[in-house]
Amino acid sequence: MAAAFRRLLVVAKRSAYEVYVGMHGDAHLKALLQEKSQVVHNLLDRHTVHQKTLQECEALLTKWKVPYDIVQRDCLPEKIEDVDLVLTIGGDGTLLETSHHLDERIPVLGVNSDPTSQEEVDANLGEYDASRSTGHLCAATASSLEEVLTDVFEERHRPVNVRRIKLSVDGREFPIPALNDVLAAHPNPAAVTRCSFWVEGAPSCSTSSASPTVYCRSSGLRVCTAIGSTGAMKSAGGFVMHPLATALQYQIREPIEPHSSQRGLMHGSILDGDSLKVRWGTRQGKAYIDGSHLQVDLKLGEELTFSNGAPQLQWFRPKDNART
């Protein structure tokens, strides 16, 4: 069945319970668990569900005699090589972290190991937050894993190439592309971010031109890919893009009294071949790549360049959007 996949790599997250209780021995968290506090009501159950999904994945691969290795998300090599397919067992964060170690040659398929149940959320709405993992980027759950992998191994479900963000600072390319988004902001969330920006056309284009330069104060600037448009960008009022779209989307977060002539420029698109140029105007700054774990320090006066010129990623789409 899996002739095209000689070896797989399974990347598993560590649950919050495993990290804070098992690894760090967090005394406060242990006390909350003993008290059966609503704050950590389903923490152990979420750990159990995640572990069961991982075990089911391993059992399935063993049954099918598919060679595989397993590695924890926090122990990934700098670059994943010598495998034909990567399975991530966790949520969107696990797939995003794994993508930082992948080039355009190896496809990745996400398995949401602990998906949110709307029925559970509704039933406990007045008691505690029963939300689990969203899994927008994941193609399978424990219940659909066998069906999805069968389609993959029999080549009925093929990966698609999706765009990633290339970030450069003063001409120095950051080596890890962003699959979801990049947030550039002051490291203190209560501080004001100052910058100026403009969209620049492709140098090779005969009609190359630049948009007006916009000067703004805000709580930061976010740039996302098409598949990243369902996350923070959507929550902030951005538009959801087709997952195979080549353009990027940018948005100024909470702009402070922009000039009347520039209000419409606080949110827009970066078309294929174009780039967003940002002149950093704050003494301190951070560029957060796909969340909070991966960061780039920014200095006053540096020029940031965002484009879709990074190597693309082979990604298995969820079945519910595979036809859109």
Rank of each mutant, 00 (worst) to 15 (best):
L298I: 04
K13R: 12
A202P: 03
L85V: 04
L43R: 07
N188H: 10
E81I: 04
A236D: 09
K30L: 13
V240Q: 12
A236T: 01
V199L: 14
T213G: 00
Y215T: 06
K13A: 05
E18H: 12
L29E: 01
R317S: 09
E154Y: 09
R158H: 12
L125C: 04
R283Y: 12
D82A: 07
W315E: 00
H50Y: 04
L95V: 03
D274E: 15
C216G: 01
L300F: 12
H186D: 15
Q295I: 06
P243L: 07
E58R: 14
D82K: 13
V19R: 11
G22M: 09
G91I: 01
S261A: 11
G90A: 02
I256M: 13
G285I: 08
S131H: 15
V240K: 09
L149Q: 10
D103S: 12
L167Y: 05
L87F: 06
R6K: 15
K286V: 14
C205M: 13
E155Q: 15
T62R: 13
S15D: 04
M1G: 13
H47K: 05
S218R: 05
V162N: 02
K30F: 00
I165T: 07
M241H: 09
V192G: 03
P67H: 08
G237F: 04
L265H: 14
L125Q: 12
R163F: 06
T141F: 07
S206H: 12
D290F: 06
V121Y: 03
P107M: 10
R7I: 01
L125A: 14
L313F: 02
S218A: 13
R217S: 14
G110L: 04
D122Y: 10
R317W: 01
H157P: 03
L244S: 07
E146F: 01
L137C: 09
V40A: 08
K30P: 00
V182C: 05
E97K: 09
T141W: 12
L145A: 06
E154T: 15
L29P: 04
D74V: 00
V11Q: 04
K63M: 10
A236S: 15
P311I: 05
S218P: 01
K52N: 08
S131N: 14
A59T: 08
G228A: 09
D129G: 05
D129F: 03
A4D: 12
E200V: 08
A185S: 13
R217V: 00
Y20H: 15
K299R: 15
W64H: 06
Y288D: 02
G281W: 06
D69S: 11
H242P: 02
R14I: 01
T141R: 11
Q118E: 12
R323T: 14
R172I: 11
P77N: 03
A322V: 03
S218H: 09
G285C: 11
H100A: 02
P311T: 03
K79N: 09
M1Q: 10
E147Q: 14
D45F: 07
P115Y: 08
S168D: 03
L54H: 00
S235E: 07
A27Y: 04
C75F: 05
S211Q: 02
T305M: 11
G228T: 01
P175S: 11
D26A: 12
D122I: 06
L145P: 01
S144Q: 11
L149F: 05
D122F: 05
H50D: 09
Q51H: 11
T141E: 11
Q118F: 10
L29H: 06
E56C: 11
A322S: 15
